[in-house]
Structure formats: C-alpha cells, structure tokens
Design a protein around this nucleic acid. Structure first.
Length: 557
RNA sequence: GCGCCUGUAGCUCAGUGGAUUAGAGCAACGGACUUCGGAUCCGUGGGUCGGGGGUUCGAAUCCCUCCAGGCGCGCCA
C-alpha cells in the first residue's frame, strides 16, 4: 500500500535528519498520515514535524522543510511536497499513482482491498447466542450482522476466522426451565387441564402453539409429570431443537452461516464443567462457603466473588462459561471475540475476572458490547416485551424490510451508539433510503456496460488511463485508492460502520462523476474506454465492500 | 448508590487530538440533462459540538466536574 511506503519514507527521512543533527537516542514518533480537508492541500498530510520538533530540537517548519526535501528525493510517485501552516507536510500524488490504482483494481478484482496483515492468527467470533426460548428478536438481531461483518473484515485482512453460536441449553439454565414450565402449562391447558400459568412465564403466542403442538402429538403422555424442574427441562428439551433450527434458518436468511453451533449441554455431557470446577478448586481459586462453591473473582477486579456451584449442587452459568472458555482455548484460537448485547454489558468485568481466575490470558480475549435497538414506526417507539409475548423477531424484520436493508441499517451505526431503527424509512424504496443510494450506483454501472453492449459500442483495446484527469475523476480515484486502508482500519477497530460510511462517500463521488463525465461517447473512443475502466473499477470496489457487509450488489433494481 | 454507553444542524448520525469554512443523509426551500437509469446531480438556509473548568502552540476529540437520557448491577443468562 502506498501509505506504508510513504510512512516508511517519512520515518527514514526523519532518522536522517536526526542523524545529521547529531541527536542520539532519537525515538521515532508514531507517524500519522491523514487526508487533508481540501484537495488544494494535497492527497496526504502529516503532522510529523510538529510532533518531532521538540525532540529534534528544531523549529517545526524547519524540520518539515528538511523532511520534505528528503521526500522529494525519494522514489515515491509524488508530484509536489509542500510545507504548510505551522509545519504540516502536504503531499500531492502524481497522476500516475491515481491511474495505477485503477489498473490495480481491475487486475486484482475481488481481491482488491484484502490484505494478509492478520495471517497466521486464528480468531473466533462468538455472537448472537440468544437464549433458546423463542425466536431471535430485534435486540439480539443487531449482533448478527455486526458479528458477521467483524468476522468478514478479519477474514479480509488475512485472519483465520470461525463464527460460533453458543446455545444455552444447559439443564440448570433458569430461563430454559422457565420456558419449559411455560410450555408445560400450555400443554396441560391444551389438554383441558386447569393449571395456573407461571407468573414470570413466557406469554408469547408461539408458546401456546408449541404447547398445543405437543398435546396434538403426544396426547396425555406427559400430562402427569410433576410440575418440577426436571419436567420443565424435559419440556424445554422437546422444543429446543425446533427453536435452534428456526434460529439457523432465520440467520441464514439474514446472510449468516455459523461454522459451529456449540451447546452448553455438551459441556455437561462430557464432564467439562465438572473438570473445570475441580481444577479451580484444586488450584485454590474456588472455595466453599454457605454450602455453595465460590470463584475468587474479587481477586481479579470483580466487585465480589461469584457462585460457581449453587448450594443445591447445580452449577451456575459462570461454571459453564469457564468450561466453555477453556474449550475455546483448547481449540487453538489465538484470539476470542465475544459480542454482547446491552443487557450483558455489566457482565463484562465479571467474565474478565472469571477468565483471569481460570488462568487465561485476557490479552487474547476481546469483549465487544453493542447498545440497544429501538424500533420506530410512525414516529413512535414500538413497545416490546419478550416475556409478555410482544416480540419483533429477525424473521419479522427480514420479511418487512429485507436482509440488505436490515443489515445496512444495523451496520450504519457504531456499535456503542444506540440505534433507532426507523421501519418506515427502511421499507421506503426511495432516495430517502441510504441502502438504495449505494446499490443504485452499482446497478447504474452495470447498466452502462449493458448499454455499451446493446449499442455495439467499440472500446479501444486497452484503456489509456492517463486520460483520466478531470477533478471528478481524480476525486473518485482518490477514494478508490483509500479502500484497502479503510478496510484495514475498520477491521482493526472492529467497526463495520466505517465501511458503510466509506460506501456512501464513494457512491456520492461516483454519482458526481457520472453526472459530469459522460462515459459512453462515440466521438471519443479513447476517453470512453478510460472512463469505462474507471466505472468498472468503482463497481468492483462497491461490490467488494458490499460483500464484506453481506449486502448484495444488484446488477439492476 | 455504583458501573457501562450516549449527548454534534429541526430529525437520524459520521468525525475521537491538528490547518481561517465541524461533515453526511433526511426534512425545508430553490434549481439541473430533448445523451449512458431522475432511486441522480447542483445550490440555499440551518450548529454556544450538553454546561463549566483544565492540559496543549492547537480540543467536538484528552483529563476533571456537573447536568440529561439509555442500559446494567442475582446462588438468572
């Protein structure tokens, strides 16, 4: 990447200046290359002279001049290097650099933008992992495109990535049992028995339907089971497969394929949890008190120690999470990424303490929390309450606005920003909807190509890219050249929204180019060929970026 | 009470240390091609970057403090 080469040259220039000045122990500051606010200020700008001035014992402007002189002597495709203001160094790229970018994009195709900076690193991204007690709702849904896109960005930067979904189907999961009790009650009611519905049970219609379904299928077979946890888990177990399958289907329709669906139950079945507890007790990390087994999380920054095993002998989710983390590390991941919803934000320090107490390296664990989603319809917040059965599910969302729109809307905002999802705007197929703005550009480019074919337009055999010198063309090429860096930055920051922002900016530049620069012009074949190449390069970058976001790039709309 | 997140234009949000003008979309108003898709483009109006203090040559951006909103604080997950 050109940025790497510039940064390298800057570092070298600075070192040479330092040497010439006889400065010992010169410490190279971090080099920042930014895009100046206006094109008159060049293509790249750096403040390095301002940062290093004190250390170099030189006035910033003088240092900047010295560095600029070195740059001018370098082999970089620079047309002009200027020192501006208090000591900024502005670099103006030679036009060959812009046109080389277009050639590179056309040559690399789908690979353009990808890098291998993460090569050799195995990462697991665990996300969604909703309690299997009903359809995946809008709150959990935000995790789906986010986690998927973080994974895709890591893949695009060379990491080896696995996407994983954790199914909380353990036998002591309170919510699973609660759900099971609700199913049992509905089942009995379907059989005409007088039973009271659990006060904190799940009231959704789907629960009633599931209870009815069991009654139809099994009749009285389970009618005389006691109303206890064991029975509740049995009822939960009847339905969990169906619920997980539904989740798989919904997420697949949302464009997400998980590599692994990991069940909490398996940790119980193969003894991992027991072993983990025994191991922790053996190391003195766990101890008995008031009949329960506690983990010494307070020693690792938690507010207090946490219960691993309840006084009645049942392990808690913390025991399961510890065993699960051990299992993950045993699978050879260099890095674990957990993606949590806002309801689990408070669990972050606790989980970190748990993992530390278990002896895992927190440097290798990353926990990303995303914020709430509010549904807006008709300008009003849509009120939802899962327990009361007022659900808006991923299925509802995909059916109502489609996967592309839903993904784009979710990915448009930073994960730690609260998200207002405007359903009215999302369903609008108009200029108000930002998704179509981007997709339209892609379709438009495809349409130009189709036009050319329909008209038997004869392009030149090779594009003469040096013809691309109009400011609209230059601005577009400049943006295209940014893509690899933008992708890398977005991946490092785990920030998909940077890509949606980039896409909108790129799209805008394309539409401006389109409006001002006629692509197909029979009177100027050479120019038409060059512009068609630029349009095609733009299409490629749009498609590559949309691909990482998991959004389709339509040829027509 | 404590913790996390947020507070930027009428609305929804980018920008999270650098340049006399803090950006985008939507909304409002006014314009544009008898040529490649008008789901487009151009222009206008609109901002004490929640308040105050501090660090710095420089703060929307870093630190402190206050205010407001959201969420969380279980032998639930």
């Amino acid at each position: 990447m050109i940025r790497d080469r510039i940064e390298e040259a800057l570092g070298e220039a600075l070192r040479e200046v330092a040497e010439a000045e006889g400065i010992a122990d010169f410490e190279l500051p971090e080099i920042e290359l930014t895009a100046p606010p206006s094109p008159e200020m060049g293509d790249f700008s750096t403040n390095i002279a301002l940062v290093a001035a004190k250390q170099a014992n030189m006035p910033p402007r003088q240092l900047a001049e010295a560095i600029a002189e070195q740059l001018r002597k370098s082999k970089l495709p620079l047309e002009k290097v200027e020192v501006a203001g208090p000591g900024f160094i502005n670099m103006f790229m030679a036009s060959s650099w812009f046109t080389d970018t277009v050639a590179e994009i056309l040559e690399s195709g789908q690979r353009y933008g990808r890098s291998s900076v993460g090569a050799g690193t195995k990462v697991q991204v665990e996300f969604v992992s909703a309690n299997p007690v009903g359809p995946i709702h809008i709150g959990n849904a935000r995790a789906a495109p986010f986690g998927d896109c973080v994974a895709a960005m890591l893949e695009a930067t060379g990491h080896e990535v696995e996407r994983e979904y954790y199914v909380n189907d353990g036998p002591y999961n309170t919510q699973a049992l609660n759900f099971g009790r609700s199913i049992q009650a509905r089942y009995l009611q379907a059989l005409g028995r007088e039973v009271e519905f659990p006060e904190d049970g799940y009231h959704g219609d789907y629960v009633t339907e599931m209870g009815q379904g069991l009654a139809n299928e099994h009749g009285e077979k389970y009618a005389d089971l006691p109303l206890d946890d064991e029975a509740a888990y049995k009822f939960f177990s009847f339905l969990v497969g169906e619920i997980v399958q539904q989740a798989q289907q919904d997420l697949q329709d949302f464009g997400i394929e998980f590599d692994v669906w990991f069940t909490e139950k398996s940790l119980y079945d193969n003894g991992d949890i027991e072993r983990e507890i025994a191991g922790l007790t053996g190391k003195g990390m766990a101890y008995e008190n008031e009949g329960a087994t506690w983990l010494r999380t307070e020693d690792f920054g938690d507010e207090s120690d946490r219960v691993l095993v309840r006084s009645d002998g049942r392990p808690t989710y913390i025991a399961a999470d510890a065993a699960y983390a051990a299992n993950k590390f045993a699978r050879g991941f260099d890095r674990l990424i957990y993606i949590f919803g806002p309801d689990h934000a408070g669990y972050v320090p606790r989980l970190q303490a748990v993992l530390a107490a278990c002896g895992f390296d927190l440097e290798r664990v990353e926990i990303i929390v995303y914020q709430n989603v509010r549904l807006i319809r008709g300008g009003e917040t849509v009120k939802l309450a899962k327990r009361k059965g007022q659900i808006y599910s991923v299925r509802d969302l995909i059916d109502e606005v489609g996967s592309d729109v839903a993904r784009f809307f979710f990915l448009m905002r930073s994960n730690d920003s609260h998200l207002d999802f405007d359903l009215d705007l999302a369903v609008k197929q108009s200029d108000e909807n930002p998704v179509y703005y981007v997709q339209y550009a892609h379709a438009r480019i495809c349409s130009i190509a189709k036009q050319a074919e329909a008209r038997d337009f004869e392009f030149a055999p090779e594009p003469q890219l040096s013809l691309l010198a109009d400011p609209f063309e230059t601005a577009l090429m400049r943006k295209l050249a940014d893509y690899p860096h933008e992708l890398q930055r977005a991946a490092e920051a785990r920030a998909p929204h940077r890509l949606t922002t980039y896409l909108r900016e790129l799209t805008q530049l394309f539409h401006q180019f389109y409006t001002n620069c006629q692509v197909l012009n029979a009177d100027d074949i050479a120019m038409s060929t060059a512009r068609m190449a630029l349009a095609e390069a733009t299409r490629q970058v749009l498609a590559n970026c949309l691909g990482i976001l998991g959004i389709t790039a339509p040829e027509s709309m």
